[in-house]
């Protein structure tokens, strides 16, 4: 049965996929929203082209003024570019969380909010409810300043481009051959095996129930196998 992609879709408790499904596209972006009651967190809101669709879903899920935090996992336009539009609509200051080495670039989108640069693994955004969103740096996968977010309450890993995929035949949840699609996307974009091994080592320490990537499909099964695959992927082939 096809899911109702026109609506926000709850992927874990009070955690929503708010992306846009373009049936013609071979590449899809996945913004997410955590509604934690008093505060909501927007994760990788996306580019300009999908913005009207994403905004509609965000508004359906929460009152915009409950959004106090925006997480940007690196500096790419497909996740950052619409941030200033949200800043204009939200009637109070928001805080942006971004890896230190990406944080010098994101003001060029016109982002005016206070930016908290993430410098070390385990730094966290602790919400008023006590919910802890931990950040883990993933240098050079794919940008020098890249990170992922682990929600310690829902055990969802927001993995950014890691575990993303090219997908013409897209579905929100991963199908059996999804790992093959992940390799197709990740191998051409990562420059070093060492960088991938570093990510695998960090993720192996976390108790992950759901992987929610910024492209492709959500993973709920065989998570250790996906993490192990990072160690086995080719990287830096374009340098040979």
């Amino acid at each position: 049965m096809r899911m109702k992609y026109e609506e926000p879709i709850e992927i874990a408790e009070n955690t929503y996929w708010v992306g846009h499904y373009d049936e013609e596209a071979g590449f899809h972006c996945n913004p997410y929203l955590i509604d934690d009651g008093e505060e909501a967190v927007l994760i990788d809101p996306g580019g300009i082209t999908h913005y009207p669709h994403v905004l509609k879903k965000v508004i359906r899920a929460v009152d915009l003024d409950r959004i106090h935090h925006i997480i940007l996992h690196h500096q790419d336009p497909d996740l950052c570019a619409s941030t200033p539009r949200y800043e204009e609509l939200i009637n109070h200051e928001v805080t942006v969380y971004n890896p230190l080495r990406a944080s010098f670039f994101i003001p060029y989108y016109g982002i005016k909010s206070r930016v908290v640069p993430i410098r070390r693994d385990g730094e966290a955004l602790v919400l008023k409810s006590g919910r802890r969103l931990e950040f883990y740096l993933t240098p050079f996968v794919h940008f020098a300043g890249s990170m992922v977010t682990y929600d310690t309450r829902s055990k969802v890993l927001f993995s950014s481009d890691i575990f993303g995929a090219f997908s013409f035949d897209w579905s929100l949840y991963a199908r059996d051959d999804y790992l093959e699609a992940v390799k197709a996307f990740l191998e051409p974009y990562v420059g070093s095996k060492k960088a991938l091994e570093n990510v695998a080592r960090k993720l192996e320490q976390l108790d992950i129930e759901v992987i929610a990537p910024q492209h492709g499909s959500i993973i709920t099964d065989n998570i250790p196998e996906f993490i192990q695959a990072l160690r086995e992927m080719d990287a830096g082939v374009y340098l040979e």
Partner: peptide, 13 residues
């Protein structure tokens, strides 16, 4: 073909 099936889907491939 296996790789493209993961990207494009069974029908297209």
């Amino acid at each position: 073909v296996r790789r493209e099936t993961a990207i494009l889907g069974r029908e297209k491939v």
